[in-house]
Amino acid sequence: MNLLTEPIGISHYLAVGAVMFVAGAVCMATKRNALGILMGIELVLNGANVNFVAFSSEYLRSGPRASLGLDGQLIALFVIVLAAAEAAVALAIALNFYNNHATIDVDRADDLKG
């Protein structure tokens, strides 16, 4: 198979989404900086968004009937908006945490430890 000459399919978009998703997940797991975790979440959301857009696209499939149609794009829009909201709140929480604990290391935030 030659990637340059063949058309692109949903699979390829999904692969990109998967890489971004996993990168986000690993980011969440390995960053001790609260903002790093936030960025990981953004990556995860984006990975999901790529999938939505891919499914809604009519260019990546053999026939238009198969695609998700506008629903995918609309959901992607909602995700973007909600991500913005989430970012705002999370940032606020992070700043608050920073103000209270004078650190941004989430490993110090283990008050819920069982």
Binding site: N46, V53, Q73, A76, I80, A84
Partner: peptide, 19 residues
């Protein structure tokens, strides 16, 4: 850019603007 390529120009634009 990927969004644009998939034919979702509005979403792509929103991505750039909002995100």
């Amino acid at each position: 850019g990927l969004y644009f390529l998939a034919g979702a120009d509005f979403v792509g634009a929103m991505q750039l603007m909002i995100y």
